[in-house]
Amino acid sequence: MEKLIISPAPHIHSGDSVSKNMTGVIIAMIPALLASLYFFGLGALIVTLTAVAACMLFELLIQKYILKGPVTILDGSAAVTGILLAFNLPSNLPIWMIIVGALVAIGVAKMSFGGLGNNPFNPALVGRVFLLISFPVDMTTWPVVAPLTMNYLDAETGATVLGILKEGSASLPAIKDMVIGNIPGSIGEVSAIALLIGLAYMLFRKIITWHIPVSILLTVALFAGILYAVDPETYASPLVHLFSGGLMLGAIFMATDYVTSPMTFRGMWIYGVGIGLLTVIIRTWGAYPEGVSFAILIMNGFTPLINFYVKPKRFGEKPNKA
């Protein structure tokens, strides 16, 4: 170099980058993706590819032609949103609805606030909730598990675990099936074991910390456990709560979204406990059978407040041992 470079310290960098983190999240989602491909076959593939492609395309178009700024679709954040959106959809959803969901997720929930890092609500969840409210029938008709099926729109449908709980129409599947994912539901939410593998990977790579998933799952287990202990007839067992619906997906991938979760460990606990409580409340007494999405979005709304009031443990605040 001709001239020496001058810059303030530090002069070295960890080499960490946004795209590395996003790629890490995508890798962590692969087990769940493979599980969904196995359980839902062609439908899962079509929905996931459509959602990812649509999210990336909308991000590209908005960045290039509306914001006229730098294009950053390769950082992986749009792809993560796409996969997460797909994970929240049934595998027999028509393509045009997925595209509408992607537009709301990227266009409304993310780019209109200023793009990556500025969105107050999790884009994939906003897209999903928008679809759920707009097309309640399509969004709550879940295909039953049919390994490696080639059916897409005409897949056979059935009720989810939480639907059964709400309606009381049939008997619950075995916990073992819920853990593996052999139950009807959204693409990514069914296989708890695959999601937990993803969590282990993200913790190992230090992409996220354990606070949010653990606090959510712990709260749900405790709260549902108390209800179950009071009246096992009316309320479902905590195990059913833990392994059914979108709880695992929400706790591991949606609530831990960097942008919309609190910045401190204490804040993360408050956030996680809040999500856990709201989830069980909505599931048990709400109109919808499933409440994770709403719970996360509500707590997303509280995140700035949590960040304002909850400060990290400062150095020198701990009482000193004599």
């Binding site: 170099m1 001239k3 020496l4 470079i5 001058i6 810059s7 303030p8």
Partner: peptide
Amino acid sequence: PRLNEYDGVKHCFIAHNLYSGE
């Protein structure tokens, strides 16, 4: 003539806080 290249935040107050200039 510029004798070195500043690679910090491109604000005078930050560069001034660091050193005398390029």
